[in-house]
Protein backbone atom coordinates (compact mmCIF):
# COMPACT_ATOMS: atom_id res chain seq x y z
CA UNK A 1 0.00 0.00 0.00
CA UNK A 2 1.56 3.31 -1.12
CA UNK A 3 1.70 6.42 1.07
CA UNK A 4 -0.80 8.12 -1.25
CA UNK A 5 -3.40 5.45 -0.54
CA UNK A 6 -3.02 5.99 3.22
CA UNK A 7 -4.20 9.61 2.77
CA UNK A 8 -7.95 9.15 3.31
CA UNK A 9 -7.33 7.01 6.40
CA UNK A 10 -4.91 9.61 7.79
CA UNK A 11 -7.48 12.36 7.21
CA UNK A 12 -10.12 10.34 9.06
CA UNK A 13 -7.63 9.60 11.84
CA UNK A 14 -7.13 13.34 12.43
CA UNK A 15 -10.79 13.55 13.48
CA UNK A 16 -10.84 10.18 15.26
CA UNK A 17 -13.30 8.78 12.73
CA UNK A 18 -11.56 5.50 11.88
CA UNK A 19 -12.87 2.14 12.97
CA UNK A 20 -10.85 0.27 15.61
CA UNK A 21 -9.15 -1.88 12.95
CA UNK A 22 -8.31 1.12 10.71
CA UNK A 23 -7.08 3.07 13.73
CA UNK A 24 -4.71 0.22 14.62
CA UNK A 25 -3.46 -0.04 11.02
CA UNK A 26 -2.88 3.73 10.78
CA UNK A 27 -1.02 3.80 14.11
CA UNK A 28 1.28 0.98 12.94
CA UNK A 29 1.87 2.69 9.59
CA UNK A 30 2.63 6.05 11.20
CA UNK A 31 5.20 4.41 13.47
CA UNK A 32 6.99 2.96 10.43
CA UNK A 33 6.59 5.72 7.80
CA UNK A 34 8.33 9.07 8.32
CA UNK A 35 6.72 10.99 5.36
CA UNK A 36 3.20 10.02 6.46
CA UNK A 37 4.05 10.88 10.06
CA UNK A 38 5.28 14.34 8.96
CA UNK A 39 2.15 14.88 6.88
CA UNK A 40 -0.11 13.80 9.74
CA UNK A 41 1.69 16.01 12.26
CA UNK A 42 1.55 19.05 9.97
CA UNK A 43 -2.22 18.68 9.67
CA UNK A 44 -2.62 18.20 13.41
CA UNK A 45 -0.57 21.33 14.18
CA UNK A 46 -2.45 23.35 11.58
CA UNK A 47 -5.88 22.31 12.81
CA UNK A 48 -5.04 23.52 16.31
CA UNK A 49 -4.59 27.14 15.08
CA UNK A 50 -7.00 29.78 16.42
CA UNK A 51 -8.14 30.65 12.89
CA UNK A 52 -9.79 27.27 12.71
CA UNK A 53 -11.78 27.72 15.90
CA UNK A 54 -15.49 28.60 15.63
CA UNK A 55 -16.11 32.32 15.35
CA UNK A 56 -18.50 34.20 17.59
CA UNK A 57 -21.56 36.07 16.36
CA UNK A 58 -23.53 38.57 18.42
CA UNK A 59 -26.51 37.11 20.27
CA UNK A 60 -28.85 39.79 18.88
CA UNK A 61 -28.27 38.40 15.38
CA UNK A 62 -29.61 34.96 16.37
CA UNK A 63 -32.60 36.45 18.18
CA UNK A 64 -33.55 38.58 15.17
CA UNK A 65 -33.07 35.67 12.77
CA UNK A 66 -35.22 33.33 14.85
CA UNK A 67 -37.99 35.95 15.16
CA UNK A 68 -37.89 36.47 11.40
CA UNK A 69 -38.24 32.72 10.71
CA UNK A 70 -41.10 32.33 13.18
CA UNK A 71 -42.90 35.32 11.65
CA UNK A 72 -42.66 33.70 8.20
CA UNK A 73 -43.91 30.23 9.25
CA UNK A 74 -46.99 29.31 7.25
CA UNK A 75 -50.02 28.00 9.13
CA UNK A 76 -49.94 24.21 9.40
CA UNK A 77 -53.33 23.10 10.77
CA UNK A 78 -56.64 21.47 9.82
CA UNK A 79 -58.11 24.97 9.31
CA UNK A 80 -55.35 25.70 6.82
CA UNK A 81 -56.11 22.62 4.73
CA UNK A 82 -59.88 23.42 4.77
CA UNK A 83 -59.12 26.90 3.39
CA UNK A 84 -56.88 25.34 0.76
CA UNK A 85 -59.65 22.88 -0.11
CA UNK A 86 -62.14 25.71 -0.62
CA UNK A 87 -59.88 27.35 -3.20
CA UNK A 88 -58.57 24.21 -4.81
CA UNK A 89 -61.81 23.15 -6.63
CA UNK A 90 -62.51 26.50 -8.41
CA UNK A 91 -58.85 26.89 -9.35
CA UNK A 92 -58.73 23.35 -10.78
CA UNK A 93 -62.01 23.92 -12.67
CA UNK A 94 -60.67 27.14 -14.15
CA UNK A 95 -57.47 25.37 -15.16
CA UNK A 96 -59.44 22.62 -16.90
CA UNK A 97 -61.60 25.16 -18.72
CA UNK A 98 -58.54 27.04 -19.96
CA UNK A 99 -56.90 23.79 -21.10
CA UNK A 100 -60.05 22.65 -22.90
CA UNK A 101 -60.45 26.06 -24.57
CA UNK A 102 -56.88 26.01 -25.76
CA UNK A 103 -57.31 22.46 -27.10
CA UNK A 104 -60.41 23.43 -29.10
CA UNK A 105 -58.65 26.48 -30.46
CA UNK A 106 -55.68 24.36 -31.58
CA UNK A 107 -58.02 21.85 -33.23
CA UNK A 108 -59.83 24.56 -35.22
CA UNK A 109 -56.49 25.88 -36.45
CA UNK A 110 -55.56 22.37 -37.61
CA UNK A 111 -58.91 22.04 -39.40
CA UNK A 112 -58.06 25.22 -41.34
CA UNK A 113 -54.77 23.75 -42.49
CA UNK A 114 -56.03 21.68 -45.47
CA UNK A 115 -57.88 24.74 -46.83
CA UNK A 116 -54.69 26.74 -46.69
CA UNK A 117 -52.83 23.90 -48.35
CA UNK A 118 -55.52 23.70 -51.08
CA UNK A 119 -55.17 27.40 -51.74
CA UNK A 120 -51.44 26.94 -52.17
CA UNK A 121 -52.07 24.06 -54.55
CA UNK A 122 -54.49 26.12 -56.60
CA UNK A 123 -52.00 28.94 -56.80
CA UNK A 124 -49.31 26.49 -57.89
CA UNK A 125 -51.66 25.05 -60.51
CA UNK A 126 -52.25 28.57 -61.83
CA UNK A 127 -48.55 28.97 -62.17
CA UNK A 128 -48.30 25.62 -63.92
CA UNK A 129 -50.97 26.74 -66.34
CA UNK A 130 -48.96 29.84 -67.06
CA UNK A 131 -45.92 27.66 -67.52
CA UNK A 132 -47.79 25.61 -70.10
CA UNK A 133 -48.68 28.75 -72.01
CA UNK A 134 -45.10 29.96 -71.82
CA UNK A 135 -43.80 26.60 -72.98
CA UNK A 136 -46.31 26.59 -75.85
CA UNK A 137 -45.18 30.09 -76.83
CA UNK A 138 -41.56 29.00 -76.77
CA UNK A 139 -42.34 26.03 -79.00
CA UNK A 140 -44.23 28.24 -81.46
CA UNK A 141 -41.34 30.68 -81.60
CA UNK A 142 -38.91 27.83 -82.20
CA UNK A 143 -40.94 26.56 -85.09
Amino acid sequence: MSCESWGPLLAAEIYGDNSEADHRAVTEHLAACAPCRAQFESWRTALAQPGLMPASVEESFWIRQKASILARLPERSAEGSRVRGRWLAPVLAMGLAVTAGWGLHRQSVRRDLPIAQNMDMLQNMDMLEHLDVLEAMDQTEAQ
Partner: peptide, 22 residues
Amino acid sequence: KAHLFHALEKMRDFLGGPSHVL
Protein backbone atom coordinates in the same frame (compact mmCIF):
# COMPACT_ATOMS: atom_id res chain seq x y z
CA LYS B 1 -12.55 10.29 3.59
CA ALA B 2 -10.96 10.81 0.16
CA HIS B 3 -12.56 14.27 -0.19
CA LEU B 4 -11.35 15.19 3.30
CA PHE B 5 -7.81 14.05 2.49
CA HIS B 6 -7.69 16.06 -0.74
CA ALA B 7 -9.17 19.08 1.03
CA LEU B 8 -6.49 18.98 3.75
CA GLU B 9 -3.75 18.60 1.15
CA LYS B 10 -5.01 21.44 -1.03
CA MET B 11 -5.59 23.78 1.89
CA ARG B 12 -1.98 23.33 2.88
CA ASP B 13 -0.76 23.83 -0.69
CA PHE B 14 -2.89 26.95 -1.22
CA LEU B 15 -1.54 28.49 1.93
CA GLY B 16 2.11 28.01 1.25
CA GLY B 17 3.28 24.40 1.49
CA PRO B 18 4.08 22.05 4.36
CA SER B 19 6.15 24.56 6.32
CA HIS B 20 3.14 26.85 6.81
CA VAL B 21 0.12 26.28 8.93
CA LEU B 22 -3.13 25.51 7.13
